[in-house]
Amino acid sequence: MVAGERFDLTGKTAVVTGGSKGLGEAISLTLAEAGANVLAVARDPVALGELAARHPRITSWTADILDPRFAEALAEHDVDILVNNAGTNTPLLMTEVTADVLDQMLNLNVRSAYLVAQAAVRSMLRRGGGGAIVNITSQMGHVGSPRRTVYCMTKHALEGLTKAMAVELAPQGIRVNSVAPTFIETPMTAPMLADPDFRQFVERMIPMGKTGQPQDVADAVLYLASSAAAMVTGTSLLVDGGWTAQ
């Protein structure tokens, strides 16, 4: 098999949550360009429609992944690849975190990610096993940082889930990995990086001296979803410019 063929996803169905903007947009387009039929999931039908118009193999799926009906519907689809990308962050000092903020982040970043992964696994097992799951975590799933106690907690949880799923599902041929980005230029990080002092802090913490781009993450996802990573499971691919290497 030549190098390019190892990244060929022709005939595979990939589901990308949070699929309409930022990382999800880049991941959806990259998987589609590699040949996958992509179901991009998000709550914004307009953004999804604009994304679907950019590639014939992208289909929009307007849904709230917090709704139990979404997981039920997902389990009935034929899923070969799941990219668990939906998530949020509300940076606050620990003393300022309200119960509502805590619950919101736990529900989206952890609870829904678990239930979506569970539904995808049920789909894969129903068809005899095999498949790839990529959880989008964060470098903050490996380290700590001020004003990110809840975010770090949720991403550490996803890293643990990745490892446990990988061990449990390896006998069924299902690979589970995570991609852990540093600060990437997306709509979610734009307000944070608009602060010159914060951007300077981020770029100082990254040995490569720059923030990442969505395509950097999408390329890592493509690798883990493809046969090029056939012997890779239970690991976290850090796309962090060296932040956690220090």
Rank of each mutant, 00 (worst) to 15 (best):
L161G: 04
G234F: 05
V167R: 14
M165T: 08
T149P: 11
A230W: 07
P214E: 10
A220W: 00
T186P: 04
Q139Y: 10
G212V: 03
M192W: 06
T162V: 14
V167D: 05
Y151R: 02
G212W: 00
V176K: 00
D197T: 13
A170C: 02
T233S: 13
T149W: 10
S145Y: 12
P181L: 01
D197R: 07
R204Q: 15
Q139V: 15
D216L: 05
G212D: 03
C152Q: 02
K155N: 02
P181V: 08
Q213Y: 02
A194T: 11
T162F: 10
P181D: 10
A228S: 04
P214K: 12
Q172C: 08
A170L: 04
R204C: 07
D216S: 01
I184E: 00
V150S: 02
A170V: 02
L238V: 10
A230F: 06
P187G: 06
V143M: 14
D216R: 03
T182H: 13
I206A: 06
G209P: 04
A230K: 15
R199A: 14
V179I: 06
M192V: 14
L222C: 04
Q213W: 07
G173S: 01
F183H: 13
D219C: 09
L193E: 06
N177I: 05
A180Y: 05
H142T: 13
T149I: 14
